[in-house]
Design a protein around this nucleic acid. Structure first.
Lengths: 237, 237
DNA sequence: ATTACTAATATCCGAGTAG
DNA sequence: TCTACTCGGATATTAGTAA
């Protein structure tokens, strides 16, 4: 069974030691590292690094063989459980610290509206980019949709005016857009400037939003349905 | 821009403080917590908890308002970046500490072979479970396939004997199976007993393995193509 | 109630060094 | 070279309070 042990102040130094070790795993859960080298990783002395290794041994998080030139350290089942537990917890935490959207296969209506010249020209002018002729649909869970709505209240929308189409004699309403940045959850540094189409006026279910961006986001981020994206708004926090 | 700062021994106590705070976020990146309560979370005194909050303020990871009964703490952009960075690093680490397989849409041949009575009866008897009549295909990256092969060398396979089918006058070769456990990467505690069909004898690409289990795994784990599963072997580490 | 200062103390770290 | 012990000094934590 996976151990449920939490990292408490008595051993978070040890958790970090394990974390640094894991970052240097080479093959088959194995690390070859001397205590001097390990000390450098930890910004600590050889003596303390050596003591850390012994602590990890005692916790049952690693096994090792001391050899002449260095020591061969192997992560135990218990050790990998410790890392897994932290991963799992962080994953949960992320749901409450960033706004996450799940990629959904779009109904093609988005593409139609974006393409309409009366809208398209305004998008280019007021959003500052020439949008791809289609939208990416993101599903938000209820926590995230609330968080998003709350944040949008404090942001000035980019207003896309309505207009009349002479030929079809139809009138098109105004649309509010909100500047944002989109990134993959596993690579938050690669951000794309994008815009959220006003969620009040979409024909979708309440928890789905539509994203406009210059590139075709499915290709740019290599997305599949179900992938998670971070939606970042320009609010000071 | 996302800060690239690493957590060094001078501030990993602070990292853990932030982590514990984040675990208790209620709404809109906000936490209401007194220094006494926070001290309990950290297994530390009220005084130290209070100092930690001040450290986090100084690092720019949180903002706060001290109120009568408690303090309202809000995670900053910088603070959420710190958490995201750790998440990203852990995600990378996981690839080297557990064997991960990516769910692939199967070609239906697996189901055919499992269903053949000559095999099916043996599966039930020798694996200890009545398998679902189909296999789940998992794609492994090259690191993980090497790791798996290495581990399988040290495990005794469950041998499924070959046989002749009188009617079709075809002969079926033997199959090796390996006991394992399968779990979702985001819920490693919920493990399903399963078996890996001998990768040497599959007709697939080299880096795809087939999994047998009692339930229909796609339903049990609510899987979509691209989801990641942990494959655990019963080896002592 | 709170938060947080100061002073006392407990803990941790690294130099020196042995095996 | 390695790892890892002892021990004095550095650092962190807490008790006692103030605000």
């Amino acid at each position: 069974m996976t151990s449920k042990e939490e990292i408490s102040p008595e051993n978070y130094a040890n958790w970090f030691a394990l974390y640094q070790l894991c970052k240097h795993i080479e093959h088959r859960q194995t690390i070859n590292i001397s205590s001097v080298e390990f000390g450098k990783l930890l910004n600590l002395s050889q003596q303390t690094a050596s003591r850390r290794i012994n602590d990890l041994l005692e916790l049952g998080w690693i096994k090792r063989k001391v050899e002449k030139k260095s020591q061969k350290i192997v992560l135990t089942k218990r050790g990998s459980d410790v890392m897994l537990l932290m991963y799992k917890n962080l994953k949960n935490i992320l749901e409450s610290i960033v706004i996450l959207g799940t990629v959904q296969s779009g109904m093609k209506e988005g593409a139609y509206y974006v393409s309409i010249k009366g809208y398209f020209d305004q998008f280019q002018e007021r959003l500052g980019f020439l949008p791809y002729k289609g939208t990416l649909n993101l599903e938000l869970n209820s926590t995230n949709i609330d968080l998003l709505r709350e944040k949008l209240k404090n942001i000035k929308p980019v207003i896309i005016s309505g207009f009349e189409d002479d030929k079809s004699e139809r009138s098109y309403g105004f649309v509010d857009c909100y500047d944002c940045f989109i990134s993959r959850i596993d690579n938050p540094d690669d951000k794309i400037k994008a815009a959220i189409l006003d969620i009040k006026r979409t024909h979708h279910k309440e928890n789905i939003i539509e994203i406009l961006a210059e590139p075709y986001l499915r290709d740019y981020f290599k997305l599949k349905d179900g992938d998670k994206l971070i939606i970042e708004l320009n609010v000071n926090r």
